[in-house]
């Protein structure tokens, strides 16, 4: 069991992180055209609503939840010190996970039942859907059977994750966890691993900058002001058309 633990909890996470970082950057630089959410709403728009919307919003909430336990464990523990508040956060997270599950099942049914969608589906799309389904089910199972995950995540998993990040891996506490939790952890690393090879890259290009940019965009092939500035003959900014 020890060598498997070492692989799942130390070896694989580093490999996944490296592959994710190098792979995503490499893919963004070399095959930028393929960076797309690959929306299939155009081929099937109605059922997508009941899949995509609960799935994405639920996932967003769960992601924020996991990240806050990782980034501010003390804050989470302080919040959880009151049983009522703990209940709120646990039940809330559970509801979001159910939303993800329902959305995901709808998305899988939709993709399998439509002739048009089968044409635009790749093997990786099915693999990702299956992996996500496994991840949500194990997550729900853990939340139900090993109560108050938000608290023990902050006390057991957060130190482990930080130990990984600081390159001093300490898996003593984590390796004692039940196998379902380990499966969930492994699933998470597998998803990170697969990001550069799948449509999941679209979350890396979430258009946050849209909030700040002006609505209209006009691009000149050369800067109209810089080119007339005698002070900057060698430092004219590169046009960003291409």
């Amino acid at each position: 069991m020890n060598s498997l633990d070492n692989f799942i909890l130390i070896g694989f996470p580093y490999a996944a992180l490296c592959v994710f970082l190098i792979g995503s950057i490499w893919r963004y630089r070399s095959t930028k055209f393929k960076f797309s959410s690959l929306s299939s709403q155009f081929l099937e728009g109605k059922e997508l609503f009941w899949g995509s919307v609960p799935f994405h919003w639920g996932l967003l909430a769960l992601f924020v939840g996991h990240m806050s336990a990782f980034l501010i464990p003390r804050g989470v523990l302080a919040w959880n010190s009151h049983p009522a508040r703990l209940l709120v956060i646990e039940i809330g997270a559970f509801i979001f996970a159910i939303a993800v599950l329902v959305g995901l099942i709808n998305l899988i049914i939709r993709r399998l039942s439509s002739d048009r969608l089968r044409v635009v589906s790749t093997k990786m799309d099915y693999a990702i859907l299956g992996l996500l389904l496994l991840q949500v089910i194990t997550g729900l199972w853990i939340a139900y059977n090993f109560r108050w995950g938000s608290s023990w995540f902050a006390t057991v998993l957060t130190p482990y994750l930080w130990s990984l990040l600081t390159i001093q891996p300490d898996i003593l506490a984590v390796s004692a966890l039940p196998w379902t939790i380990k499966l969930h952890i492994f699933g998470a690393y597998l998803i990170v691993f697969l990001i550069p090879f799948s449509r999941l890259v679209h979350f890396l290009v979430v258009p946050i900058h849209y909030i700040w940019r002006p609505y209209q965009r006009v691009i000149w092939s050369w800067s109209r002001t810089d080119v007339r500035n005698p002070k900057s003959p060698w430092s004219i900014k590169r046009p960003r058309n291409n």
Partner: peptide, 15 residues
Amino acid sequence: CVASCPSGAIYKRGE
């Protein structure tokens, strides 16, 4: 279309 593009992929050529 330009104003609606979240990615900023659509633009008007100045020239």
